[in-house]
Design a protein around this nucleic acid. Structure first.
Lengths: 195, 195
DNA sequence: GTCTATAAAACGATAGAC
DNA sequence: GTCTATCGTTTTATAGAC
């Protein structure tokens, strides 16, 4: 009796974790299948190739972030501080829950010079981020300056994730959040520790 | 007539470029051999495995940086501004010459949760960086603050490299340099565009 | 829908001729 | 020191029984 063990969406979630932890090239279809409680042969019933699966995973993550993370930037009933704080809390939860950091950042560095297959969803993620965060900063800064602050925050987040991954100084993520909020509050850009 | 086609050091340099561009797991021994003008079988005469080669490449990069990049931080005859500016110029040249960005950063994200084989040289790189940059900042800030500024600069550099890789906004590296020098000059931490 | 079995290709690594 | 040839393994992907 062939009972369905997983849904397509469950596979996307499990696969996301495996890709985040191991990277794209290091992950085998067998790894992905077993993470879903399936044997490799069964796994091909859902996804015809690793590349197709990865593209869907990236799209799934973008959809999730758009709905549950970046959306808060446009809830004008909240103050800019509340919106930025909540956005970062939700983003960091996704980044820090389960090992591996940021799937988008990892995949950029691992694949961008080897294939263009993933370029569009990867760029979309960072566009969505800077648009959302930039929108919040626009409540205090002119558009151009707000965009640059958002871009700079993306840089600090990705760089911090890398250093956390290397040495486990998890306070770096909190520092990121503190700086981002302080810039919003002060209308200027303080240093890493808010000196 | 078996004529020697490459030296060990030439292999390390070529391999560094290939690893930087393609990543560790995506790179095959055939890729590495051909990059050196050799066939796969010949390549094993120099290095017994891909892992051993990668470790030597990382050590080679660390040695090079120690001698030709970070060393300038301790040339007390130069002003702190000159030392920091030159250190970053040399570091960015290595990062931006030939595609792929920062081999150390790439390798952290690609391998740190899959194997511990490369952990030591990777940590060594970032330790060397923060020690060198921290030493420069100590000419203006107390030790603890100087270390945090150096750590924050490492974050900004690695994050910037990632965003450059994604979208080609190469001005982000110049911004990094400008911020680093401005913090040194001002005795405080300005924002991304020096507002 | 899941399984076993297997094909087909890619890859790391070795052996031996020159 | 470089080459050809090949071994053993891993991996992607497919076929067919249940």
């Amino acid at each position: 009796m062939p009972v369905q063990k997983v849904t397509r969406e469950e596979i996307l979630q499990k696969a996301m974790r495996v890709f985040k932890r191991q990277g794209y090239h290091r992950t085998t279809m067998d790894d992905l299948a077993r993470a879903c409680g399936l044997l490799k042969g069964s796994f091909y019933h859902y996804f015809s190739s690793k590349e197709v699966l990865m593209k869907e995973v990236l799209r799934y993550v973008n959809d999730f972030n758009e709905k549950h993370v970046f959306a808060v930037a446009y809830e004008e009933s909240l103050s800019p501080e509340e919106r930025l704080g909540q956005l970062l809390d939700r983003l960091f939860r996704g980044v820090m829950t389960s090992e591996g950091g940021c799937l988008m950042g990892n995949t950029v560095l691992e694949t961008s010079l080897v294939t263009t297959e993933f370029k569009e969803p990867l760029q979309q993620h960072f566009t969505n981020f800077t648009r959302a965060v930039g929108h919040i900063y626009e409540s205090v800064f002119p558009a151009e300056k707000a965009f640059r602050l958002a871009e700079h925050l993306a840089i600090e987040i990705e760089g911090s994730i890398m250093l956390v991954r290397l040495g486990g100084h998890e306070y770096l993520m909190q520092d990121c959040r503190d700086r981002a909020l302080e810039r919003l509050r002060n209308g200027r850009e303080p240093g890493p520790s808010g000196s």
